[in-house]
Amino acid sequence: MDVIEEVVGSARAGRAFARRIRESGPWGMRFPAFTGVGFHAVLQGSGWLISAAEKPVALRSGDIVLAGHGAEHGLSHTPGVLSDLPVSAMGSRQHDPRPAAIEMLCSAYRLDGGQVHLFLRQLPAVIRVSPDYGRHPELRSLIDLLDIDVTQSRLGIGVTRSALVDLLLVHVLRLWQEEQGSAAWPAIDAAVAAALREIHQSPQTPWTVQQLSVMAGMSRTAFTRRFTSAVGKPPMAYLIGWRMVRGAQLLRETEAPLSAIARQIGYSSEYAFAVAFRREFGVSPGRFRRRAQAPGDKLG
């Protein structure tokens, strides 16, 4: 199972947002917790990453901060306490002609429903990576392209924004994996991993707990207990959630009719799919698709 491919694929169930931030003088901001994955790229200047559980981490030009599962965090000109920072003002800002102490590119996939991928939830709350842009010039190019996409209003922004955020997320996760080695993704029980692989690869299959437990070589009760402990929800609840993630991806990325999408993710009718989708995301599949196809927004 390609973890990074799955992580990015599940994030596409949300919508990509991005904005540029310039700060001068004493500055600080707190980003409340949200459902999704986000990152900050320091374009120039320096500052500090502030989190609730860890000591402040120094940031310099070129550093990237990843909030893998939307944990609350802050950025500031000086080390401090997270709760002391003001909540970041969302939306676009007027251009400030003064020299900036720091310039950052902030982006996120915010999920309207569902949950962040299992592997992202296992990451530390916030991560700093310091890329070697000599070894990874493509990462610098992607940051520059996203910066242009954010600062210049052009046609097709809904397509370019998502594509660039996808690629940046892939590269940042690769860097983290290179730095951490086997510790990047905490190990999952082999029996649970086998069940997850089948669910992810064939969500349209009418799986039962009995079938999955046999595949795992365990009793139904033992399998359910172990799966729930590792993943955070029972097997059937996870299966439904994954089907909804795949359905949201197909709604966002294809023009396939709802009946076809329903069949691809294991529902016998468009109605059954719509009921399950509304329960998970709070909106009908049709409304979700229309909203997903609207022009891209800035972060916030």
Rank of each mutant, 00 (worst) to 15 (best):
M244A: 11
A108H: 13
M244Q: 10
I102W: 04
A195P: 05
D147P: 00
Q115G: 11
D166Y: 04
R197H: 07
H73T: 04
R278V: 11
A190G: 08
V81H: 15
V116I: 13
R161N: 07
V65S: 06
L239D: 06
V214E: 14
V275R: 13
G286I: 10
G45V: 06
R278P: 13
S61H: 06
H200W: 08
E23G: 04
R154Y: 09
L155Y: 06
P295L: 04
D63A: 06
S259V: 11
G80M: 04
G74K: 00
R140N: 10
H73R: 12
A16V: 11
H95N: 03
L111K: 05
V8T: 01
P86H: 05
Q115D: 07
D2Q: 10
A163G: 11
G247C: 01
E253M: 08
V81C: 15
A89R: 14
I143C: 06
G266P: 01
G113N: 01
A294Y: 07
R20E: 15
Y109E: 01
S259T: 14
V65T: 01
V170D: 02
V57S: 14
R220S: 15
D63C: 03
P234S: 04
A101G: 01
F31T: 14
L169R: 12
R121W: 01
H77P: 00
R93T: 09
P186Y: 09
V209N: 13
R98Y: 07
H136K: 12
V3R: 10
M236D: 09
G114F: 03
E255V: 12
G91T: 01
Q293D: 05
S269W: 02
Q94N: 07
L212Y: 08
E280G: 06
V129W: 04
G74F: 03
S269V: 02
L123T: 09
Q210R: 13
F34Y: 15
A262H: 03
A53Q: 14
H77Y: 07
F34K: 07
F31Y: 12
G217I: 03
S24E: 08
A276I: 07
V129H: 00
R20V: 09
M236H: 11
W48S: 04
D96H: 00
Q152H: 13
E54P: 02
I143Y: 01
P186K: 10
D84F: 02
L49Q: 07
H200C: 10
R60S: 08
W176S: 04
I21G: 10
I157K: 14
S107F: 14
L212I: 14
A276E: 12
S24I: 01
R19C: 06
V275D: 11
M236T: 03
E253P: 01
E6M: 05
S92T: 14
A108M: 10
P137M: 11
I50N: 06
K233G: 06
D84K: 03
I199M: 15
P131G: 10
M244H: 04
F31W: 09
R93P: 02
G9H: 05
P99L: 02
Y238K: 05
A294W: 03
Q293Y: 00
H95A: 04
S162Y: 01
V3I: 15
D166N: 15
E280D: 11
